[in-house]
Design a binder for these strands. Sequence first.
DNA 1: ATTGTCAATCTCACATTATGAGAATTTCCA
DNA 2: TGGAAATTCTCATAATGTGAGATTGACAAT
Lengths: 274, 274
Amino acid sequence: MSSLVRMLGVLDVFSEDVPVWTVDRLVEELGYSRSTAYRYVKELCEAGLLAQIGGGNYMLGPRIIMMDRQIRICDPLLAAGQKIMPGLLDMCGKGALRICCLYGDKLILIHQITNISGLEERYPRGLQMPRVLGAASKLILAHLPERQAIKIFLHHQDEIKSAGLGESWEDFRANLRQMRLDKTSRAYGEIDPDAVGIAAPIFGGDGPIVGSLSLVVKERPFSEKRLDTLSDQIQKGAAQLSKIIADLSNPYSESPSAVAMAIGPSHKEPLRRR
Amino acid sequence: MSSLVRMLGVLDVFSEDVPVWTVDRLVEELGYSRSTAYRYVKELCEAGLLAQIGGGNYMLGPRIIMMDRQIRICDPLLAAGQKIMPGLLDMCGKGALRICCLYGDKLILIHQITNISGLEERYPRGLQMPRVLGAASKLILAHLPERQAIKIFLHHQDEIKSAGLGESWEDFRANLRQMRLDKTSRAYGEIDPDAVGIAAPIFGGDGPIVGSLSLVVKERPFSEKRLDTLSDQIQKGAAQLSKIIADLSNPYSESPSAVAMAIGPSHKEPLRRR
DNA sequence: ATTGTCAATCTCACATTATGAGAATTTCCA
DNA sequence: TGGAAATTCTCATAATGTGAGATTGACAAT
């Protein structure tokens, strides 16, 4: 293992459950020597990724908060979402409206608004979403290039089966195809037991899916008619978002960074040979 | 320069102005060989600190958003702030209410609420505040242990002079002392030209300052009487916050992490010998 | 299919640099 | 003014990061 990986491994142990570490406990956990652990911590502190609190205690540092700000400021999808989501939610009744975004191979909740108290805290920005469970996840799966879908199928075969997404690759593939045709996906209580999820795809300026807009409905009844109406609204909202970020990446846009950002997370897997 | 520092240097070039980089431009900017740049980028991607977008473009990655979430969830000061700030702002009229927090040697805006449109976007969570300008900054300066105050005086001497905080160390020291006695600080248009800032200190469970609560007033008139009333309210609010996080770190609290977090950012500088 | 281009990884000899035990230093608190 | 805890320093040794160039893979155009 390279020393670079070893150093970044330090960041991994800072979790929600154990957000504060002393160097001694790091040594215990990671098996590094005390010298090395101190060296890593010192360099991570200098980079701002860690910060010292109290005597000998360390936590995640200010650079992380600053970099998240940068990501937020530069994200055209977030900006577009903040513009159109409040109006959309009003039309949908009690629930929550979310944007999830693909970053490399991770699906991250990047924005949520809700009119149900307590939901904001349980699903805040930054939450990693499952890859095969829930309306947003399934929908994104459906719009992935085939190569990536295969990879995920092989990796999450069991979860895919228990989610009823298909027993075989052909099964699975057909289900994905159906979702593409439907333009939206639905999930009945897959994440939140007493809620229904509806999701629609958001595309980058040049075609590939970059994320999804999804609605979580908690207000009964879940009649087919009502869900169809909502699906339609979500789909229109997602199309609006796609259009906004596509316009940013058109040749008339002046900001090269906005262009690149609007293209969105890659649909391309890094090469990997063995 | 160690290779660890060299690798983390990659993160430094991802700025608000240039949030997207290709490996080739990284090579140009940083002077690394192409092999090395690719190796760094690959490892940073595996750690989630970078993510690939489009072909050959990279931006800051999902781990940063996830780690910011962790920081938010674990931060008792943020939680306390979200509880008491809305009510406090209602009593203060038009303006904005902020919590700034010391992380190591950086002063970061960690939460803001406002009833003026457009202010939220200009001053979002994650913004790094100046060390000597504005009510919050000056106030925190005033409550720093003397060693750190000296260090900052030596480092920011010019800014301190032009901010009218003192021509000499004795001058400066006396001004800080006065702010400590006042319990609050004020700034007239130091950051925002047509606003007045009022700040009060937030202390950790065991004494040292961890941050500040500050109010930005944009509604005239700025009469002495009104400002005195507001100062009093801010000071009470800050005291409330100090109490909440002190209670978390008392011996009856069960969560050791909450304890450590509540102690807050260190008042201690890392050792540095030359 | 075929070719050209770009992105990313691989190979390998070489030299730089990370490592860890223990000593030395600094800081903090009583 | 001690004494304990936290942190940095020293240095010989071994490990590993480095970079030029070749290679591979992906993709688009013809």
